[in-house]
Design a protein around this nucleic acid. Structure first.
Lengths: 176, 176
DNA sequence: ATTAAATTGTTAAAATATTATCATTTCGAA
DNA sequence: TTCGAAATGATAATATTTTAACAATTTAAT
């Protein structure tokens, strides 16, 4: 049923979120079953590519029938890790950082913003939607004390490199 | 000097903005000359790839010397169209749409937001930084009357497809 | 119960993209 | 001025990605 190889190419990984979004829409639209051909028509890819992409993770379809939309969507959720929760921090509490912190919809997708960091004394100590703004000096301390999966860098570009280096030193899994 | 072929692969196009950002940083750091080898070291690509990518557009380098940073940057500006001005509209004046409209830094890069669109009667008629919010019904009308290069969709996802269709019907060059 | 149509998963072929190689050119030191 | 080191741009080799083809299986109609 499922393939032996465990390596999945980057090109495939890039397409997975797109598959997921289409399946989510189709499921919401009440579509239950779907052929690679039909999906290819909608997405503008080839049916062959879709079948090959999905087969990297296992034979989710059924010959002569196609794919079950909900089932396939569930598999994609597992593959993409959308069923997991992620803890975020935002470095830079300026315009963009504040806008992101205020934008509540991330929680629904499993992303929880735990802290903001900045160097501006006027901002340090403030809270946005209950999320505290800390002194940038405390960055490593916070990451050491709190599980942190992803950091969003929302600083002027000049500072981004330095921040990136510091985050990498902390073993952050994802930087955005 | 320059290559005959005029087709440039998507993979190359995806890398160009990254080249530009590195060159911009290097120029600001006072670096005048640069070899493909040195750039490859910094960017984590192969020197060969960099040379081949750049050669899609012409022989900007000099044997035995390398590339002149400012000159190469200028070429990339031309290739990427960063010297041009673009007129934008934002469809959806909710959280994200407003945040984008408020974020002034786009103008510096040549992107001018000309209008916002929404269906919410409370928002229609309002202005953000002098940018008016129009009724979504007026979308086609506005695009017909004003040069519009790019549309940013900042609506809930359910509406995005319909908006996209309408924008495509208007011959918008870019949708984000 | 048969059969035709539809569809998958897999294998093979074709197309693209990346990397290595190398002749040629330029710089810069002796 | 000569020579070696450094570097490009082009070409060739390798690797990856995409597409096509097809046997096997399932559905559904007659």
């Amino acid at each position: 049923m499922s393939k032996a190889s465990n390596y999945v190419s980057e090109a495939v990984m890039r397409r997975l979120p797109k598959y997921y979004r289409y399946l989510d829409d189709l499921e919401k639209g009440g579509v239950e079953r779907l052929s690679s051909k039909e999906l290819s028509r909608r997405m503008g890819l080839t049916a062959s590519q879709i079948r090959q992409d999905l087969n990297c993770f296992g034979g989710f379809g059924q010959q002569g029938y196609g794919y079950n939309v909900s089932e396939l969507k569930k598999e994609l959720i597992k593959i993409l890790g959308l069923d997991k929760k992620y803890n975020l921090i935002i470095v830079g509490a300026g315009n963009i950082g504040q806008a992101l912190a205020n934008y509540g919809a991330f929680e629904k997708e499993g992303f929880f913003i735990n802290a903001l960091f900045d160097t501006n004394p006027k901002l340090i100590g403030m809270s946005i939607r209950g999320i505290k703004i800390y002194d940038l000096d405390y960055l490593e301390g916070h990451i050491g004390d709190n599980p942190t999966d992803i950091a969003i860098i929302a600083t002027p570009r000049e500072r981004a490199q330095e921040i990136t280096d510091r985050l990498i030193a902390c073993d952050i899994k994802g930087i955005w």
